[in-house]
Design a protein around this nucleic acid. Structure first.
Lengths: 145, 145
DNA sequence: ATTATAGGTAAGTTATATTGACATATTATA
DNA sequence: TATAATATGTCAATATAACTTACCTATAAT
């Protein structure tokens, strides 16, 4: 029988608070740049995913974001107005729309990311590779729980 | 000179996505219970902090949540209507108000927490103590970055 | 006496998301 | 070929959580 300190409620509460704060801080560092382009957190997340998954389809974006179509479309319309995304129909199944950041979009992403990544970069730089690997490992388990 | 894989942009992007998903999942498991009491994520966070820091002052709550007084007060008023929090003036400095969950509040917290903690508990149970310690270590560094 | 701190409130606004209903185009299948 | 399923879009109404700006009281510290 396991009887570990970190499985006790107090430690679990503490971790949950840290997960919240870690998220909030990670996604607030870039606020100034977002303001510069009059966009918000929702736009940042979409841009982030577009930079990771070039040409991702709408339905896959929806699945990753776990928001409704209506919610995503509001954001996409803003990004179209900003002229930073483009669409390409799938050549085989023309129902599917692939979304891409254009050059301007990639530049704006880099501006955002430059600020956002600092916090993570410094934390990892200050950690051993084993610590980093274990951080990733546990985070994955939390996600797939 | 460090030249580590996990300090590369692609890995940082990946981690940032995971931090987002980990937060979202961690705070969505308890949605059914929140609905039962007609409260939301903001209330859950306040209740969580009240269970961790019994008698915390308003200003310290504000500092932990990083929201405005108006925002917090909306939530506190809902919790008063639900009859789950009580206030006590500080005996020395009567400007300070200490906030507590009452018995009903503690019970509701336990209902919420029971659902919320499962994901974290299982992830930790499935990890070695070193992995857990390193997860906590890196998360702390991200927060304090 | 003055200033700072702790907390409260009012009005209006913004950001992000929801539900429900309906529409179109395309592809897959019986 | 008729029908069902999929991918996407849109309208309208609503909810949640936050914001800004401004002003207020009470108490404590200097």
């Amino acid at each position: 029988m396991k009887e570990l300190l970190y499985l006790k409620d107090d430690q679990l509460k503490d971790l949950i608070e840290k997960i919240f704060v870690g998220y909030r801080e990670t996604f607030s560092d870039s606020k100034k740049i977002l303001d510069k382009y009059s966009i918000g957190l929702a736009h940042q997340k979409v841009i982030h995913l577009l930079s990771m998954y070039e040409g991702i389809s709408i339905s896959k974006l929806l699945a990753k974001l776990k928001v409704t179509k209506q919610s995503l479309n509001r954001v996409l319309k803003d990004l179209i107005k900003l002229e930073i995304i483009v669409f390409k129909k799938d050549e085989i199944d023309t129902r599917i729309k692939h979304v891409f950041l254009n050059e301007k979009g990639k530049k704006i992403f880099e501006e955002i990311f430059l600020l956002q990544k600092k916090r993570i970069y410094n934390a990892l730089l200050d950690s051993s590779s084993e610590e980093v690997i274990n951080f990733d490992k546990v985070l994955k388990k939390i996600i797939n729980g």
